[in-house]
Design a protein around this nucleic acid. Structure first.
Lengths: 201, 201
DNA sequence: TTTTTTATAATACAACTGTGCTAATATGCG
DNA sequence: CGCATATTAGCACAGTTGTATTATAAAAAA
Protein backbone atom coordinates (compact mmCIF):
# COMPACT_ATOMS: atom_id res chain seq x y z
CA UNK A 1 0.00 0.00 0.00
CA UNK A 2 1.06 3.59 -0.45
CA UNK A 3 1.07 6.49 1.94
CA UNK A 4 -2.14 6.10 3.89
CA UNK A 5 -4.15 9.32 3.70
CA UNK A 6 -7.08 10.52 5.76
CA UNK A 7 -9.69 10.61 3.03
CA UNK A 8 -12.01 12.93 4.86
CA UNK A 9 -9.30 15.43 5.62
CA UNK A 10 -8.28 15.50 1.95
CA UNK A 11 -11.89 16.06 0.95
CA UNK A 12 -12.12 18.98 3.35
CA UNK A 13 -8.93 20.44 1.93
CA UNK A 14 -10.40 20.22 -1.56
CA UNK A 15 -13.71 21.67 -0.41
CA UNK A 16 -11.94 24.65 1.13
CA UNK A 17 -10.01 25.12 -2.09
CA UNK A 18 -13.41 25.19 -3.79
CA UNK A 19 -14.50 27.85 -1.28
CA UNK A 20 -11.60 30.06 -2.26
CA UNK A 21 -12.27 29.60 -5.96
CA UNK A 22 -15.94 30.43 -5.44
CA UNK A 23 -15.08 33.49 -3.38
CA UNK A 24 -12.77 34.62 -6.15
CA UNK A 25 -14.88 33.92 -9.23
CA UNK A 26 -18.32 32.75 -8.22
CA UNK A 27 -19.84 29.30 -8.40
CA UNK A 28 -19.35 28.95 -12.14
CA UNK A 29 -15.60 29.31 -11.65
CA UNK A 30 -15.57 26.20 -9.48
CA UNK A 31 -14.45 23.84 -12.23
CA UNK A 32 -12.68 20.64 -11.27
CA UNK A 33 -9.47 21.91 -12.85
CA UNK A 34 -9.44 25.25 -11.03
CA UNK A 35 -10.24 23.63 -7.69
CA UNK A 36 -7.51 21.03 -8.16
CA UNK A 37 -4.99 23.71 -9.03
CA UNK A 38 -6.05 25.87 -6.07
CA UNK A 39 -5.60 22.83 -3.82
CA UNK A 40 -2.17 22.26 -5.36
CA UNK A 41 -2.91 18.85 -6.76
CA UNK A 42 -3.55 17.25 -10.11
CA UNK A 43 -6.90 16.73 -11.78
CA UNK A 44 -6.57 12.95 -11.50
CA UNK A 45 -5.82 13.31 -7.84
CA UNK A 46 -8.97 15.32 -7.18
CA UNK A 47 -11.01 12.73 -9.01
CA UNK A 48 -9.62 10.12 -6.66
CA UNK A 49 -11.52 11.83 -3.84
CA UNK A 50 -14.56 13.08 -5.74
CA UNK A 51 -15.91 10.99 -8.59
CA UNK A 52 -17.94 13.84 -10.06
CA UNK A 53 -18.06 17.61 -9.85
CA UNK A 54 -21.52 17.53 -8.27
CA UNK A 55 -20.10 15.47 -5.44
CA UNK A 56 -17.43 18.09 -4.83
CA UNK A 57 -19.93 20.95 -4.87
CA UNK A 58 -22.39 19.18 -2.59
CA UNK A 59 -19.62 18.31 -0.14
CA UNK A 60 -18.40 21.91 -0.16
CA UNK A 61 -21.89 23.14 0.64
CA UNK A 62 -22.27 20.51 3.33
CA UNK A 63 -19.01 21.63 4.88
CA UNK A 64 -20.35 25.16 5.32
CA UNK A 65 -23.39 24.01 7.27
CA UNK A 66 -21.26 21.60 9.30
CA UNK A 67 -18.91 24.40 10.30
CA UNK A 68 -21.76 26.65 11.38
CA UNK A 69 -23.51 23.85 13.25
CA UNK A 70 -20.28 22.94 15.02
CA UNK A 71 -19.73 26.55 16.05
CA UNK A 72 -23.28 26.80 17.38
CA UNK A 73 -22.87 23.60 19.39
CA UNK A 74 -19.59 24.81 20.84
CA UNK A 75 -20.88 28.24 21.81
CA UNK A 76 -20.34 28.54 25.56
CA UNK A 77 -23.60 29.41 27.32
CA UNK A 78 -23.50 31.82 30.24
CA UNK A 79 -26.99 31.22 31.57
CA UNK A 80 -27.94 34.83 30.83
CA UNK A 81 -30.72 34.40 28.29
CA UNK A 82 -30.08 37.64 26.42
CA UNK A 83 -26.33 37.10 26.14
CA UNK A 84 -26.71 33.49 25.08
CA UNK A 85 -29.24 34.28 22.37
CA UNK A 86 -27.02 37.02 21.01
CA UNK A 87 -24.04 34.69 20.94
CA UNK A 88 -26.01 32.03 19.08
CA UNK A 89 -27.32 34.46 16.50
CA UNK A 90 -23.80 35.78 15.98
CA UNK A 91 -22.59 32.40 14.71
CA UNK A 92 -24.70 32.73 11.56
CA UNK A 93 -23.62 36.23 10.58
CA UNK A 94 -20.45 36.95 8.56
CA UNK A 95 -18.81 38.98 11.31
CA UNK A 96 -15.19 37.99 10.72
CA UNK A 97 -13.13 36.57 7.85
CA UNK A 98 -13.81 32.95 8.79
CA UNK A 99 -17.57 33.41 8.80
CA UNK A 100 -17.39 35.72 5.80
CA UNK A 101 -16.09 33.13 3.35
CA UNK A 102 -18.68 30.69 4.67
CA UNK A 103 -21.33 33.30 3.97
CA UNK A 104 -20.13 34.01 0.46
CA UNK A 105 -20.05 30.31 -0.39
CA UNK A 106 -23.44 29.83 1.21
CA UNK A 107 -24.96 32.62 -0.86
CA UNK A 108 -23.53 31.10 -4.04
CA UNK A 109 -24.91 27.71 -3.03
CA UNK A 110 -28.28 29.22 -2.18
CA UNK A 111 -28.65 30.58 -5.68
CA UNK A 112 -27.57 27.27 -7.17
CA UNK A 113 -30.05 25.42 -4.93
CA UNK A 114 -32.95 27.18 -6.63
CA UNK A 115 -32.39 25.21 -9.82
CA UNK A 116 -30.64 22.12 -8.44
CA UNK A 117 -33.04 19.70 -6.71
CA UNK A 118 -30.43 17.76 -4.73
CA UNK A 119 -28.78 20.90 -3.38
CA UNK A 120 -32.21 22.29 -2.61
CA UNK A 121 -32.89 19.38 -0.26
CA UNK A 122 -29.73 20.12 1.68
CA UNK A 123 -30.57 23.82 1.75
CA UNK A 124 -34.04 23.17 3.15
CA UNK A 125 -32.71 20.84 5.82
CA UNK A 126 -30.24 23.44 7.02
CA UNK A 127 -32.86 26.17 7.12
CA UNK A 128 -35.32 23.97 8.93
CA UNK A 129 -32.85 23.31 11.71
CA UNK A 130 -31.97 27.00 11.72
CA UNK A 131 -35.63 27.89 12.21
CA UNK A 132 -35.74 25.37 15.07
CA UNK A 133 -32.86 27.21 16.67
CA UNK A 134 -34.68 30.52 16.47
CA UNK A 135 -37.83 28.92 17.84
CA UNK A 136 -35.84 27.71 20.81
CA UNK A 137 -34.38 31.16 21.28
CA UNK A 138 -37.84 32.76 21.32
CA UNK A 139 -39.17 30.20 23.78
CA UNK A 140 -36.15 30.68 26.01
CA UNK A 141 -36.62 34.45 25.91
CA UNK A 142 -40.15 33.98 27.15
CA UNK A 143 -39.25 31.33 29.72
CA UNK A 144 -41.49 28.88 27.93
CA UNK A 145 -40.74 25.17 27.42
CA UNK A 146 -39.91 24.33 23.81
CA UNK A 147 -42.85 22.25 22.58
CA UNK A 148 -43.77 22.09 18.92
CA UNK A 149 -46.05 23.14 17.47
CA UNK A 150 -45.39 26.57 18.90
CA UNK A 151 -48.01 29.17 19.59
CA UNK A 152 -48.75 31.32 16.53
CA UNK A 153 -47.09 34.33 18.14
CA UNK A 154 -43.91 32.45 18.98
CA UNK A 155 -43.78 30.93 15.51
CA UNK A 156 -44.17 34.37 13.96
CA UNK A 157 -41.40 35.87 16.08
CA UNK A 158 -39.05 32.99 15.27
CA UNK A 159 -39.73 33.34 11.55
CA UNK A 160 -39.20 37.09 11.64
CA UNK A 161 -35.94 36.72 13.58
CA UNK A 162 -34.80 34.12 11.08
CA UNK A 163 -35.58 36.35 8.12
CA UNK A 164 -34.02 39.40 9.75
CA UNK A 165 -30.75 37.59 10.39
CA UNK A 166 -30.66 36.02 6.92
CA UNK A 167 -31.26 39.42 5.36
CA UNK A 168 -28.61 41.04 7.52
CA UNK A 169 -26.16 38.31 6.53
CA UNK A 170 -26.53 39.20 2.85
CA UNK A 171 -26.34 42.92 3.53
CA UNK A 172 -23.16 42.37 5.53
CA UNK A 173 -21.57 40.41 2.70
CA UNK A 174 -22.05 43.40 0.42
CA UNK A 175 -21.27 45.96 3.12
CA UNK A 176 -24.48 47.74 2.12
CA UNK A 177 -24.21 51.48 2.85
CA UNK A 178 -21.26 50.75 5.08
CA UNK A 179 -23.20 48.33 7.30
CA UNK A 180 -20.71 47.16 9.91
CA UNK A 181 -20.75 43.94 11.96
CA UNK A 182 -21.37 46.08 15.06
CA UNK A 183 -24.42 47.80 13.54
CA UNK A 184 -25.80 44.48 12.39
CA UNK A 185 -25.40 42.97 15.83
CA UNK A 186 -27.05 46.02 17.36
CA UNK A 187 -30.09 45.41 15.16
CA UNK A 188 -30.24 41.78 16.24
CA UNK A 189 -30.01 42.79 19.90
CA UNK A 190 -32.74 45.38 19.34
CA UNK A 191 -35.03 42.72 17.94
CA UNK A 192 -34.18 40.29 20.74
CA UNK A 193 -34.97 42.97 23.33
CA UNK A 194 -38.34 43.49 21.68
CA UNK A 195 -39.03 39.78 21.87
CA UNK A 196 -37.96 39.65 25.52
CA UNK A 197 -40.13 42.69 26.21
CA UNK A 198 -43.17 40.96 24.74
CA UNK A 199 -42.74 38.09 27.18
CA UNK A 200 -42.97 40.35 30.21
CA UNK A 201 -46.49 41.46 29.46
CA UNK B 1 -33.90 48.71 -45.34
CA UNK B 2 -35.28 45.54 -43.86
CA UNK B 3 -37.99 45.08 -41.33
CA UNK B 4 -37.49 47.87 -38.82
CA UNK B 5 -37.40 46.42 -35.33
CA UNK B 6 -37.71 48.09 -31.94
CA UNK B 7 -34.25 47.33 -30.60
CA UNK B 8 -35.15 47.83 -26.99
CA UNK B 9 -38.17 45.58 -27.20
CA UNK B 10 -36.05 42.84 -28.75
CA UNK B 11 -33.53 43.21 -25.98
CA UNK B 12 -36.27 42.86 -23.39
CA UNK B 13 -37.57 39.75 -25.14
CA UNK B 14 -34.09 38.26 -25.02
CA UNK B 15 -33.62 39.26 -21.39
CA UNK B 16 -36.88 37.57 -20.45
CA UNK B 17 -35.78 34.48 -22.31
CA UNK B 18 -32.64 34.65 -20.17
CA UNK B 19 -34.87 34.86 -17.09
CA UNK B 20 -36.61 31.63 -18.04
CA UNK B 21 -33.34 29.85 -18.71
CA UNK B 22 -31.97 31.04 -15.35
CA UNK B 23 -35.13 29.93 -13.54
CA UNK B 24 -34.81 26.53 -15.18
CA UNK B 25 -31.09 25.87 -14.81
CA UNK B 26 -29.46 28.60 -12.78
CA UNK B 27 -27.18 31.39 -13.91
CA UNK B 28 -24.56 29.06 -15.36
CA UNK B 29 -27.16 27.71 -17.77
CA UNK B 30 -27.60 31.17 -19.28
CA UNK B 31 -25.32 30.57 -22.24
CA UNK B 32 -25.80 32.67 -25.33
CA UNK B 33 -26.92 29.61 -27.28
CA UNK B 34 -29.53 28.50 -24.74
CA UNK B 35 -30.95 32.00 -24.41
CA UNK B 36 -31.16 32.42 -28.17
CA UNK B 37 -32.95 29.08 -28.51
CA UNK B 38 -35.34 29.93 -25.66
CA UNK B 39 -36.12 33.22 -27.41
CA UNK B 40 -36.69 31.33 -30.66
CA UNK B 41 -33.94 33.02 -32.62
CA UNK B 42 -30.52 32.20 -33.91
CA UNK B 43 -27.22 32.78 -32.20
CA UNK B 44 -26.18 35.37 -34.76
CA UNK B 45 -29.45 37.19 -34.22
CA UNK B 46 -28.93 37.45 -30.50
CA UNK B 47 -25.45 38.76 -31.09
CA UNK B 48 -26.95 41.51 -33.21
CA UNK B 49 -28.62 42.87 -30.07
CA UNK B 50 -25.99 41.97 -27.48
CA UNK B 51 -22.34 42.08 -28.49
CA UNK B 52 -21.20 40.00 -25.52
CA UNK B 53 -22.69 37.65 -22.98
CA UNK B 54 -21.88 40.02 -20.12
CA UNK B 55 -24.00 42.67 -21.80
CA UNK B 56 -26.93 40.28 -21.97
CA UNK B 57 -26.59 39.29 -18.33
CA UNK B 58 -26.22 42.87 -17.10
CA UNK B 59 -29.25 43.95 -19.12
CA UNK B 60 -31.26 41.05 -17.72
CA UNK B 61 -30.37 42.07 -14.19
CA UNK B 62 -31.16 45.68 -14.95
CA UNK B 63 -34.55 44.68 -16.29
CA UNK B 64 -35.46 43.09 -12.96
CA UNK B 65 -34.76 46.24 -11.00
CA UNK B 66 -36.55 48.35 -13.61
CA UNK B 67 -39.64 46.21 -13.32
CA UNK B 68 -39.70 46.47 -9.54
CA UNK B 69 -39.05 50.21 -9.60
CA UNK B 70 -41.81 50.71 -12.13
CA UNK B 71 -44.25 48.74 -10.00
CA UNK B 72 -43.32 50.75 -6.92
CA UNK B 73 -43.83 54.03 -8.79
CA UNK B 74 -47.19 52.88 -10.08
CA UNK B 75 -48.47 51.69 -6.73
CA UNK B 76 -51.65 53.67 -6.04
CA UNK B 77 -51.44 55.46 -2.71
CA UNK B 78 -54.56 55.65 -0.56
CA UNK B 79 -53.34 58.22 1.94
CA UNK B 80 -53.64 55.70 4.76
CA UNK B 81 -50.05 55.42 5.93
CA UNK B 82 -50.25 51.83 7.08
CA UNK B 83 -51.95 50.56 3.93
CA UNK B 84 -49.59 52.45 1.65
CA UNK B 85 -46.47 51.18 3.38
CA UNK B 86 -47.77 47.63 3.17
CA UNK B 87 -48.51 48.00 -0.51
CA UNK B 88 -45.03 49.35 -1.21
CA UNK B 89 -43.31 46.58 0.72
CA UNK B 90 -45.38 44.04 -1.16
CA UNK B 91 -43.86 45.04 -4.49
CA UNK B 92 -40.48 43.62 -3.48
CA UNK B 93 -41.70 40.23 -2.27
CA UNK B 94 -42.25 37.25 -4.62
CA UNK B 95 -45.95 37.00 -3.89
CA UNK B 96 -47.17 35.93 -7.33
CA UNK B 97 -45.68 34.27 -10.40
CA UNK B 98 -44.62 37.56 -11.99
CA UNK B 99 -42.71 38.70 -8.93
CA UNK B 100 -41.47 35.17 -8.30
CA UNK B 101 -39.41 34.84 -11.46
CA UNK B 102 -38.01 38.31 -10.82
CA UNK B 103 -37.00 37.13 -7.38
CA UNK B 104 -35.35 33.98 -8.63
CA UNK B 105 -33.37 35.88 -11.22
CA UNK B 106 -32.46 38.52 -8.67
CA UNK B 107 -31.14 35.90 -6.27
CA UNK B 108 -29.02 34.37 -9.02
CA UNK B 109 -27.71 37.82 -9.92
CA UNK B 110 -27.03 38.61 -6.28
CA UNK B 111 -24.75 35.62 -5.96
CA UNK B 112 -23.00 36.50 -9.20
CA UNK B 113 -22.57 40.09 -8.02
CA UNK B 114 -20.37 38.93 -5.17
CA UNK B 115 -17.57 38.02 -7.58
CA UNK B 116 -18.40 40.33 -10.50
CA UNK B 117 -17.41 43.97 -9.87
CA UNK B 118 -19.60 45.54 -12.58
CA UNK B 119 -22.72 43.64 -11.48
CA UNK B 120 -21.88 44.51 -7.90
CA UNK B 121 -22.14 48.21 -8.69
CA UNK B 122 -25.62 47.75 -10.10
CA UNK B 123 -26.60 45.62 -7.11
CA UNK B 124 -25.42 48.25 -4.64
CA UNK B 125 -27.26 51.02 -6.47
CA UNK B 126 -30.52 49.10 -6.36
CA UNK B 127 -30.16 48.31 -2.69
CA UNK B 128 -29.29 51.88 -1.83
CA UNK B 129 -32.46 53.16 -3.42
CA UNK B 130 -34.37 50.34 -1.73
CA UNK B 131 -33.01 51.44 1.63
CA UNK B 132 -34.08 55.01 0.79
CA UNK B 133 -37.59 53.68 0.22
CA UNK B 134 -37.68 52.01 3.62
CA UNK B 135 -36.29 55.15 5.24
CA UNK B 136 -39.14 57.12 3.71
CA UNK B 137 -41.61 54.53 4.94
CA UNK B 138 -40.30 54.78 8.50
CA UNK B 139 -40.41 58.57 8.43
CA UNK B 140 -43.91 58.53 7.04
CA UNK B 141 -45.00 56.11 9.75
CA UNK B 142 -43.77 58.55 12.35
CA UNK B 143 -45.16 61.61 10.63
CA UNK B 144 -41.65 62.98 10.28
CA UNK B 145 -40.29 64.85 7.25
CA UNK B 146 -37.78 62.82 5.26
CA UNK B 147 -34.45 64.54 5.84
CA UNK B 148 -31.18 62.69 5.55
CA UNK B 149 -29.23 61.92 7.54
CA UNK B 150 -31.96 60.29 9.58
CA UNK B 151 -31.96 59.96 13.33
CA UNK B 152 -30.11 56.83 14.50
CA UNK B 153 -33.38 55.21 15.56
CA UNK B 154 -35.06 55.80 12.22
CA UNK B 155 -32.01 54.58 10.35
CA UNK B 156 -31.95 51.42 12.46
CA UNK B 157 -35.63 50.72 11.86
CA UNK B 158 -35.26 51.25 8.12
CA UNK B 159 -32.28 48.91 7.97
CA UNK B 160 -34.06 46.26 9.99
CA UNK B 161 -37.16 46.49 7.82
CA UNK B 162 -35.00 46.22 4.72
CA UNK B 163 -33.22 43.13 6.04
CA UNK B 164 -36.46 41.52 7.21
CA UNK B 165 -38.06 41.91 3.80
CA UNK B 166 -34.99 40.72 1.92
CA UNK B 167 -34.76 37.68 4.16
CA UNK B 168 -38.46 36.95 3.74
CA UNK B 169 -38.07 37.23 -0.03
CA UNK B 170 -35.49 34.44 -0.06
CA UNK B 171 -37.51 32.30 2.33
CA UNK B 172 -40.56 32.73 0.11
CA UNK B 173 -38.63 31.64 -2.97
CA UNK B 174 -37.81 28.36 -1.24
CA UNK B 175 -41.21 28.06 0.44
CA UNK B 176 -39.36 27.46 3.71
CA UNK B 177 -41.45 25.31 6.05
CA UNK B 178 -44.46 26.10 3.93
CA UNK B 179 -44.10 29.85 4.35
CA UNK B 180 -46.98 31.36 2.39
CA UNK B 181 -47.26 34.82 0.86
CA UNK B 182 -49.98 35.60 3.40
CA UNK B 183 -47.81 34.63 6.37
CA UNK B 184 -44.92 36.66 4.99
CA UNK B 185 -47.12 39.73 4.54
CA UNK B 186 -48.47 39.26 8.07
CA UNK B 187 -44.91 39.42 9.39
CA UNK B 188 -44.26 42.61 7.46
CA UNK B 189 -47.46 44.18 8.79
CA UNK B 190 -46.49 43.10 12.30
CA UNK B 191 -43.17 44.88 11.98
CA UNK B 192 -44.80 47.98 10.47
CA UNK B 193 -47.27 48.11 13.34
CA UNK B 194 -44.37 47.96 15.77
CA UNK B 195 -42.71 50.86 13.98
CA UNK B 196 -45.94 52.87 13.95
CA UNK B 197 -46.39 52.08 17.64
CA UNK B 198 -42.94 53.46 18.43
CA UNK B 199 -43.89 56.78 16.86
CA UNK B 200 -46.86 57.28 19.19
CA UNK B 201 -44.73 57.39 22.29
C1' DT C 1 12.79 -8.70 -1.32
C1' DT C 2 8.56 -9.21 -3.64
C1' DT C 3 3.82 -8.35 -3.97
C1' DT C 4 -0.15 -5.70 -3.72
C1' DT C 5 -2.79 -1.76 -3.18
C1' DT C 6 -3.33 3.18 -2.77
C1' DA C 7 -2.29 7.59 -4.30
C1' DT C 8 -0.83 10.73 -7.91
C1' DA C 9 -0.26 12.15 -12.41
C1' DA C 10 -0.86 12.56 -17.36
C1' DT C 11 -3.29 12.19 -21.47
C1' DA C 12 -7.42 11.71 -24.37
C1' DC C 13 -11.90 12.79 -25.98
C1' DA C 14 -16.27 14.45 -26.99
C1' DA C 15 -19.22 18.11 -25.84
C1' DC C 16 -19.92 22.82 -25.07
C1' DT C 17 -18.38 27.59 -24.57
C1' DG C 18 -17.97 32.79 -26.33
C1' DT C 19 -17.00 35.28 -30.13
C1' DG C 20 -15.51 36.48 -34.87
C1' DC C 21 -16.67 36.35 -39.58
C1' DT C 22 -19.41 35.66 -43.83
C1' DA C 23 -23.38 34.84 -46.50
C1' DA C 24 -28.28 35.14 -47.17
C1' DT C 25 -32.71 37.36 -46.48
C1' DA C 26 -36.10 40.66 -46.55
C1' DT C 27 -38.03 45.22 -46.52
C1' DG C 28 -38.30 50.31 -46.54
C1' DC C 29 -37.05 54.04 -49.65
C1' DG C 30 -35.83 56.47 -53.94
C1' DC D 1 -38.43 48.34 -60.03
C1' DG D 2 -33.91 48.11 -57.87
C1' DC D 3 -30.93 49.26 -54.27
C1' DA D 4 -29.15 49.86 -49.87
C1' DT D 5 -29.18 48.17 -45.34
C1' DA D 6 -31.08 46.33 -40.97
C1' DT D 7 -31.74 41.82 -39.77
C1' DT D 8 -31.20 36.93 -39.63
C1' DA D 9 -28.79 32.79 -40.09
C1' DG D 10 -24.83 29.84 -40.30
C1' DC D 11 -20.28 28.24 -39.79
C1' DA D 12 -15.57 28.31 -37.89
C1' DC D 13 -12.25 28.43 -34.36
C1' DA D 14 -9.79 28.35 -30.27
C1' DG D 15 -10.41 27.51 -25.58
C1' DT D 16 -12.62 25.15 -21.66
C1' DT D 17 -15.42 21.79 -19.69
C1' DG D 18 -16.40 16.99 -17.21
C1' DT D 19 -15.06 12.53 -17.25
C1' DA D 20 -12.74 8.14 -18.74
C1' DT D 21 -8.57 5.70 -19.17
C1' DT D 22 -3.98 4.55 -18.50
C1' DA D 23 0.56 4.86 -16.57
C1' DT D 24 3.70 5.87 -12.79
C1' DA D 25 5.25 6.20 -8.01
C1' DA D 26 5.32 4.82 -3.40
C1' DA D 27 4.76 2.35 0.69
C1' DA D 28 2.51 -1.13 3.61
C1' DA D 29 2.23 -6.16 3.91
C1' DA D 30 3.92 -10.71 2.63
Amino acid sequence: MPKIVDHNQRREELAQAAWRVIKQGGIEAATVRKVAEEAGMSLGSLRHYFETQSELIAFSMDLVSNRVTKRIRQTPLTGNIRTDCIMLAAQVLPLDEERRIEGEVWLAMTAKSLADPSLRILFLEVHDSLLRLFEQIVCRCWGQPYNRPLSPVAAAEARALHALIDGLAVHLLFELEGLSPETAMALVERQLDRIIGMGDQ
